[in-house]
Amino acid sequence: MTHRPAAWHAATVRSVSRETASARRIEFEVPTWPGNDAGAHLDVRLTAPDGYQASRSYSIASSGDSRRVVLAVDEVPGGEVSPFLVHELQPGDQVEIHGPLGAYFVWTPGDERPVQLIAGGSGVVPLYAMAELHDREQDSTPFRLLYSVRTPDDRFFASELEQIAARGRLEASYVYTRAVPAGWHSAPGRVTRDALAAATWPVDRRPRIYVCGPTPFVETVADWLTELGHEPRAIRTERFGGG
């Protein structure tokens, strides 16, 4: 991990694209950005003409020394900031960002312990940053991802994750809670303890485990992981809520 002091930066939108039916990918150019670890987050602050401000925290999908910062923002219905970011923000617009933030829910190459990523919904964003860095750096640590999401179309970074998996750099398993692809091996439903045990590294491999998603998902999965015998200190969690 590299220590990069958090500070305010002016970020200019370079591009926006559809991520899922409810989410948008936003790429910022931040000339003063010091870079960030994979898994870090930042605060976005918006200011209205009368001085009114609103701030929210978002996980960063990109990592490394780049001045390019990528977010993937899911719209929280009725929210104040996420609907603006998803529907209104356009290339050339500027927002203030503060970061990089968080030195705990991060992964850095060079650690020998296998990595288990477990995502619920848009919680995959910081975990994608880890898988992407691991692939880009040709790191030799084995990586697995278990991704619980409503339908195949709701997957964030779907084609990127497929490409990383196709290169043999990630073993990805998916759990669909609402609708499954044609010919899928099971009916839609939430992840079970048995499915979790089957899709994740066994305890004797001593994986580092990163879990990110909505609170009930994270609570359930983290409880099962400790029941399965994983060391509580090896399980790092991040929960989200509020828009």
Binding site: P49, A54, D93
Partner: peptide, 21 residues
């Protein structure tokens, strides 16, 4: 701080018990 184009926000009647941000 600078203005972000198009942002108006909602919570004009800001509760004075809320700290900044």
């Amino acid at each position: 701080s600078f203005i972000t184009r198009g942002f108006s926000g909602r919570g004009r009647d800001r509760d004075p018990r809320l700290p900044p941000g």
